[in-house]
Design a protein around this nucleic acid. Sequence first.
DNA 1: TTACTTGTACTAGTATCGTAGTACAACTAC
DNA 2: GTAGTTGTACTACGATACTAGTACAAGTAA
Lengths: 132, 132
Amino acid sequence: MAEIFSLSPSHPMPLYAQLTRAIRFAIATGKLGVGEQLPTVRQLAVELRVNANTVAKVYAELERSGILETRRGVGTFVSARHFAAHHRDEHEKHLAELVDRFVEEAGAMGFSIDDVLDQLQSRRKKETKKNV
Amino acid sequence: MAEIFSLSPSHPMPLYAQLTRAIRFAIATGKLGVGEQLPTVRQLAVELRVNANTVAKVYAELERSGILETRRGVGTFVSARHFAAHHRDEHEKHLAELVDRFVEEAGAMGFSIDDVLDQLQSRRKKETKKNV
DNA sequence: TTACTTGTACTAGTATCGTAGTACAACTAC
DNA sequence: GTAGTTGTACTACGATACTAGTACAAGTAA
């Protein structure tokens, strides 16, 4: 673990949320592999100039989500269970919930699902273009 | 204006947000027509059992968004400008911003735009099915 | 002008959130 | 066992968010 997550205290998003997001993203993109150990709460707290409890809360939350596994006296690790097949359903459910919120919000602004689909599709085209 | 917006104080979403959403939705779905007058801040405050200032804040915010127009001593009305052509761009921009946030959030959970598109498309099918 | 309506500014109280400090508990290694 | 590591529980402080109370300002109508 040479690289470190970066937080901006001035950003409106709270530190714990920034860190949660950073860790989730690191795992989702493979920067953090299955079984890999994360820095200890104190280590990371010092490096991010943050209280140890803030890091601990994040680790605990991610453990409840099944993404991390913590062992006292040892450390915190990227969970293997999370990537097991029986967790796929739950993952899908989370996406469904996210989409729910999104559709509702867009609806309150007067947009239909089709409007949203158009936006997303044009965005996808740009993305794939960039990555070619 | 016979029907009234409904708020639930026990809901985690703050009252002002609930009201904002309700009004936006009413306008977006045509329940509130262009030029139509909304209840006065005091009237609505009494009916919703809420402080007048809470309603006023919502009206003020929606006015800043160009959705409402207020005239002292007269009342608050659904703005006509909002539906003028030159506001379409801004509306589109809001959708784009919403989609931005959404894609980012989904990305942090490890979902690609394609995953999201799949979800939305299957949802659209269900919607159209229901409405037939 | 005067009475009455409307929205608004200012202030304050309460609750909640985010973070930090400190002390504690579980575990490992020797 | 003891020392040293790890995560955790409890508490408290500061900041912010939300709502309400009160007094005010701008406009209308007679």
